[in-house]
Design a protein around this nucleic acid. Structure first.
Lengths: 118, 118
DNA sequence: TCTACAATTCAACGAATGTCGATATGTTGA
DNA sequence: TCAACATATCGACATTCGTTGAATTGTAGA
């Protein structure tokens, strides 16, 4: 991930409704959420959400697929992990005091055994 | 780190000059950089940088101290790691495919031995 | 104290952003 | 084909954001 992409990702997440949308999509898992349901969950109008989803999509943080009348949105896990890597690589800069605390989050999130395939 | 703080941090990083400022400060290390040098490094006017530094400071991503005529800015490592933790905790949500790639960044950045004190 | 330097604050401007209403596109079943 | 539903697009508007130039605050040395 280059600086330009990271910039787009940060800008995308720096907006209340977009951050909430992404969190809802991550919580929803790989099955994703229909745009309508997502709009209702966030509490904004459908057309406004469309605007924000386009932003998130352009930043590589979400993906979409059509399913019948609905368009299902899902979190782009690779985009998210790219952003985390950017933060760690760029902002850690060899200083354990930045990266080390992330380890606890890693442990809390993913069972240690699941990280072997990296 | 709560959602409001994460929002402020993302918004702060979603701006070219602010992202470059933070990266420069991280690269500078704990000694930090004087505002004037930082402005020169980024290539923007001093007063404009002041505006951006206030934004970064309010987001908890940098700190400052006066040293003679200069004001020295430094990256706030704890703020940075909080943001990384927020991303991992909130966006990982038990899915190793998001967190796992971060491990490689962690390994590349910090020697494994240095993370024991967490 | 006066001068020079370093950084910040202020007012003002143009540009970009987020939201809304209306309209358009696309999909499904009758 | 038609009506009903789900999204997306468009035009317009108010608000916010980033930059600039001028003025202000704070610090150090002559």
């Amino acid at each position: 991930m280059d600086e330009r992409q990271a910039l787009a990702a940060f800008a995308a997440l720096g907006q209340e409704h977009r951050l909430r949308a992404l969190r809802a999509l991550v919580a929803a898992g790989p099955d994703g959420l229909a745009a309508g349901l997502l709009a209702e969950a966030i509490g904004i109008a459908g057309n406004t959400l469309s605007f924000h989803l386009k932003e998130l999509s352009h930043a590589g943080l979400i993906a979409s697929r059509r399913e019948g009348k609905s368009v299902i949105y899902t979190a782009a896990y690779d985009g998210l992990s790219d952003l985390i890597r950017f933060l760690m690589r760029d902002c850690c800069q060899g200083r354990p005091e930045v990266c080390a605390p992330a380890l606890s989050a890693l442990a809390a999130c993913c069972p240690a055994g699941d990280t072997d395939h990296v």
